[in-house]
């Protein structure tokens, strides 16, 4: 066991894992975080706490993770390279471990232009692959990047993102291989809408034997409305939403129900793809749907490990 986190144990025991995203508030309310954690706890194995996602300032991931942990839910701390240099990154990691956080997702981070402080300076002292390497070194060699000794263990389950839809497509598997080589233990992918392309990507992943080395959780975004479907199709970088799904949302009598239906269909198709070890639900500002989807997909109750 590398970290002993709930997520790691669920995956180690061969269960199909379920994680869900929890966005911290644009404010200081601990109650907000606790409420969402309480909602998600029965229906997932771990919750990803985003790190100022889309470059909008929110409660820090490490603090929100600590609150989630107190509620008895296993947090996955997301960390971007956009806002911190290697000093801040390593220091935050020490603090995270001290607070009982055991999972980390290493990200480059959305460009600050997309957020509410477009004039801020980005950092990118490390890129996500170098971050993965740094965390592995801290954990496995008990050393800082500089080589100085760390006192105390750094039990962290190291995660990384992968996007089967971004360009250049052929580079995507290569980049995944690099992340695995750098030390990633698990992968959470960008949201899957076009299952065919995802399946093709997974085939390339298997050809390289990567599914044997890393646990892959497929991303899922439940669509709440036709407006959201269109927005994601047209404006969200890195996402690919087929027109057919937008049409379905448009023609649906009950849009939310249609969104749930689409999510369930996608789950049905991807859970059988060899090498997929779980699912990561990103119900942005629609956390209430997670219990519903996991229930109807037959994922409940979650295993006790």
């Amino acid at each position: 066991m590398k970290s002993g986190s709930n997520l790691e144990r669920v995956l180690e025991e061969g269960h199909f894992a379920v994680t869900a995203e929890l966005g911290p508030p644009k404010g200081s309310s601990a109650e907000f975080v606790r409420r969402k954690a309480g909602l998600l706890k029965p229906c997932c194995d771990a919750a990803n706490i985003t790190d100022n996602q889309t470059a909008v300032v929110r409660m820090s991931s490490v603090a929100a993770c600590a609150l989630v942990k107190q509620e008895g839910l296993d947090p996955v701390m997301q960390m971007t390279c956009r806002d911190r240099n290697r000093i801040a990154i390593q220091s935050d990691l020490l603090g995270a471990v001290a607070l009982g956080i055991r999972n980390l997702l290493c990200l480059s981070g959305d460009h600050q232009k997309f957020g509410n402080h477009p004039g801020s300076k980005n950092v990118h002292d490390l890129d996500s692959i170098q971050l993965i390497g740094a965390v592995r070194k801290m954990r496995d060699e008990a050393q800082f990047m500089s080589g100085d000794k760390i006192s105390g263990g750094m039990p962290l389950f190291i995660g990384a993102a992968a996007n089967p839809y971004a360009d250049p497509f052929e580079f995507r598997v290569l980049r995944l291989a690099k992340k695995v080589k750098a030390g990633a233990d698990f992968i959470q992918t960008q949201a899957v809408f076009d299952v065919e392309r995802f399946a093709k990507w997974m085939e390339m992943v298997r050809d390289k034997g990567l599914d044997q080395k890393v646990r892959i959780l497929a991303g899922l975004i439940p669509i709440k409305s036709v407006g959201m479907a269109r927005y994601m199709r047209d404006y969200v970088s890195g996402l690919m939403v087929p027109d057919e799904l937008v049409d379905r949302m448009e023609n649906a009598k009950d849009a939310k129900e249609e969104g749930v239906q689409i999510a369930l269909e996608i789950i049905e198709q991807i859970r059988d793809i060899p090498g997929v070890h779980g699912i990561h639900i990103m119900a942005v500002a629609w956390e209430e749907v997670v219990p519903l989807i996991t229930e109807r997909a037959g994922f409940l109750p979650r295993p006790i490990v």
């Binding site: 480059s108 170098q130 971004a166 360009d167 580079f171 290569l174 690099k178 970088s237 890195g238």
Partner: peptide, 10 residues
């Protein structure tokens, strides 16, 4: 980025 592209290119 020096190890490859982010997930945002389209």
């Amino acid at each position: 980025l020096i190890n490859g592209p982010c997930g945002g290119a389209r």
